[in-house]
């Protein structure tokens, strides 16, 4: 049945959305998810749960999503193409729907050699765009092979990701358009530190006429410390750009954490000014408890109550 998700309702009603992401634990303890989630509850419209990010074994995103639901938090379940073929993905999607999960985020996934089992066979039966088509098909009652799903079929609110900092820049909006065409309704971007480049990307999307076709959520990672920013800068995490200016600012900060919050709030305020940016996606990376503070300071609290 086509019941809209909370995230979808917030976005469709034109309100600025806030989501946040948590990584499931590297063990079987549900309490660790609940612990992180309690900081986010009430301060975000939905909580993303990742699918073994950096190709490192973690509790499945489906299990994580169900744990969040039990805490009355709406999940956004991540699915990557790295570990599952089209059969397994559809099977998981049917299961996710049966368990009430409705927001799905489609990613290609980090390559296996980044992770803790670099010997694993990479699957990549599909890429992210084909995965979006698959989820859309299933959502409309068709398997990926175009055959009809007999009986109850899932309904999903489909999201995807885009990296405004990847190359070639002029092709990023074209690829984003393909994701929209495949069925993506909302897009989370890679972490924004380089605002200049982000705004260039948004402008290109505007010129390409796709901004009104999709809800863009800007990726925000509050920098917890100088060490963290340097770690990202030294390209340990590819795809994110950290301007030197930001490093210098953090270096001269008296209180790194306080400055990190300031930086996050300033970035939120800046991205908000861009047309087409319809929300933010927080990636607190082990700093979940700071989310309420940031959301409040960015004047995004209270969150809309939508029935």
């Amino acid at each position: 049945m086509k019941i809209k998700t909370n995230l979808q309702k917030v976005l469709e009603s034109g309100q600025f959305a806030v989501t946040a992401e948590i990584d499931p634990p590297k063990n079987a303890d549900p309490e660790l998810i609940k612990e992180k989630a309690k900081w986010l509850k009430g301060y975000v419209d939905a909580v993303n749960i990742t699918d073994s990010p950096r190709a490192t074994v973690k509790m499945s995103s489906l299990a994580g999503a169900v744990i969040l639901q039990k805490e009355n938090i709406e999940p956004v379940m991540h699915i990557t193409c790295r570990d599952r073929n089209r059969i397994a993905i559809q099977s998981d999607l049917l299961g996710a729907s049966a368990l009430g999960v409705k927001n799905i985020l489609c990613l290609t996934g980090d390559y296996v050699t980044f992770g803790d089992h670099p010997q694993a066979k990479p699957v990549f039966d599909l890429d992210s765009i084909q995965l979006i088509s698959l989820v859309k098909n299933l959502s409309e009652g068709r398997y990926f092979n175009k055959k009809e799903v007999k009986g109850k079929h899932p309904y999903f609110f489909i999201g995807a990701v885009e990296n405004p900092f990847a190359d070639p820049l002029e092709f990023r909006p074209i690829r984003l358009a393909k994701k929209i065409k495949a069925g993506a309704r909302f897009i989370q971007t890679q972490i924004v530190y380089n605002l200049e480049r982000f705004e260039k990307f948004i402008k290109l999307c505007e010129d390409f006429g796709i901004l009104e076709k999709v809800y863009i959520l800007a990726g925000i990672a509050p920098p917890k410390s100088l060490k963290m920013l340097k770690y990202i800068k030294e390209s340990k995490i590819p795809g994110i750009e950290v301007p030197d200016e930001l490093i210098r600012r953090m270096e001269s900060a008296k209180d790194e954490k306080e400055e990190g919050i300031n930086i996050a709030v300033e970035i939120i305020e800046r991205v908000k000014e861009n047309p087409g940016v319809r929300g933010i996606h927080l990636m607190p990376i082990g700093w979940e408890f700071i989310v309420p503070e940031i959301v409040k300071r960015a004047k995004l609290y209270p969150r809309p109550k939508i029935c």
């Binding site: 992210s128 990296n163 990847a166 070639p168 393909k178």
Partner: peptide, 19 residues
């Protein structure tokens, strides 16, 4: 490495693969 048919993914920087 990801056999992408609708690339490039977000891991392409300055024309180089992140892998």
């Amino acid at each position: 490495p990801k056999n992408m048919l609708n690339g490039p993914c977000g891991g392409c920087k300055n024309g180089v693969c992140e892998v």
